[in-house]
């Protein structure tokens, strides 16, 4: 009951925040020079004043900014995120179409990164300065320093062009007819290997470094020493006593990364032609597709707020000293 009330309070607080975000986004987008009519007229290679005027009227860009904002707000309050004139379809449909691809990529890569990063961090922290610790530090620094697009392209050259083990890009084999759902899932999994692993690599470095330092901080504290003195097996000391306390910053990092659904995977989605939201947002910026961008930012801000809430709830569950206060 107390948790339910806390969630309700937090959600109520989120409403003005989201509205403020929408307003700020609208103003920022209007400050950028150029609009969708400029882009479409520009792509044509030539245009007449009547053509540009027709586009502006069609897109509602001939109206004053405040009228455009008012119209957008009214339509948003009725859960209509508007129409993308670039894609000729509703913004909500576009977002829902692309969301599964991004979620699949992001959750898989964060899952891989969490598993590898936490194990590597814990292992490295057990013998500070030892060969494993130095190896993990070196490896994570190297991985972190390598640009994701470069790693992605190298992986394509090796695994797709030379070895021909994995596809170059996309989410499924285009034009293929899948005899059943398992064949389709298998096809998606094959396409997912390279982008998810490449994206995970950059996260692994972060998780490993953070886990290592958090573990080093807690392993000399009294309660860990007490557990050891009581004869608790080393495995339990590490995972039940030390890691449980060290995991809080990792939870925060995971929450932040899940919230950054748009920015986190733009490069990977572009290099691997993955049909996700990050690429959609990037293309929408170039096209000045204001309706689509506002929709994406709205969606993203709601996600960040929700992920923050989830992180706070997980914090309280993991650490009994933390109390939920609205």
């Amino acid at each position: 009951m107390r948790v339910g009330l806390y969630i309700l309070k937090r959600l109520a607080q989120a409403v003005p925040v989201v509205l403020a975000i929408v307003a700020v986004n609208f103003i920022l987008l209007k400050l950028i020079p150029g609009d969708l009519a400029d882009v479409i007229a520009g792509e044509g290679g030539s245009a007449t004043p009547e053509y540009v005027a027709m586009l502006k009227q069609q897109f509602g860009l001939d109206q004053p900014d405040y009228v455009q904002f008012y119209r957008y707000l009214v339509s948003m309050l009725s859960l209509n995120l508007g129409y993308s004139f670039r894609y000729n379809m509703s913004v909500l449909t576009l977002i829902w179409d692309r969301l599964p691809a991004t979620l699949l990529l992001l959750l898989t890569s964060i899952g891989i990164a969490l598993a590898l990063g936490v194990v590597a961090g814990v292992t490295a922290s057990r013998k500070r300065g030892g060969i494993v610790d130095q190896g993990v530090t070196l490896f994570s620094s190297l991985i972190f320093a390598m640009p994701t697009f470069w790693v992605g392209l190298l992986a394509i050259v090796l695994f797709s062009v030379h070895l021909r083990w994995l596809p170059v890009g996309g989410m499924t084999t285009t034009g293929a007819i899948h005899p059943g759902p398992f064949a389709l899932l298998g096809d998606i999994a094959r396409h997912l290997v390279l982008p998810a692993t490449t994206l995970a690599l950059s996260y692994v470095a972060l998780y490993a470094r953070m886990t290592r330092s958090a573990m080093l901080e807690v392993q000399d504290l009294d309660y860990v020493r007490t557990a050891r003195a009581k004869g608790v097996p080393q495995r339990l000391v590490v995972f039940r006593h030390a890691l449980r306390n060290a995991i809080l910053p990792i939870v925060t990092l995971t929450g932040l990364q899940l919230g950054s659904i748009l920015g986190g995977s733009i490069v990977i989605e572009t290099v691997y032609s993955w049909p996700g939201l990050g690429r959609l947002a990037f293309e929408a910026v170039g096209a000045r597709d204001v309706n689509l961008l506002l929709g994406l930012f709205f969606f993203s801000s709601v996600l960040v707020i929700l992920m923050n809430l989830v992180v706070d709830l997980v914090y309280a569950a993991l650490d009994p000293r933390i109390e939920l206060e609205g």
């Binding site: 797709s160 285009t174 034009g175 290099v271 293309e283």
Partner: peptide, 22 residues
């Protein structure tokens, strides 16, 4: 029988797709 136009945004990826025969 069919033409499939794949949307590949990255120029280097298009190179790789051609070289891989995809």
């Amino acid at each position: 029988d069919r033409i499939v136009f794949r949307f590949l945004p990255d120029a280097a990826t298009r190179s790789a797709a051609l070289e891989a025969g995809e």
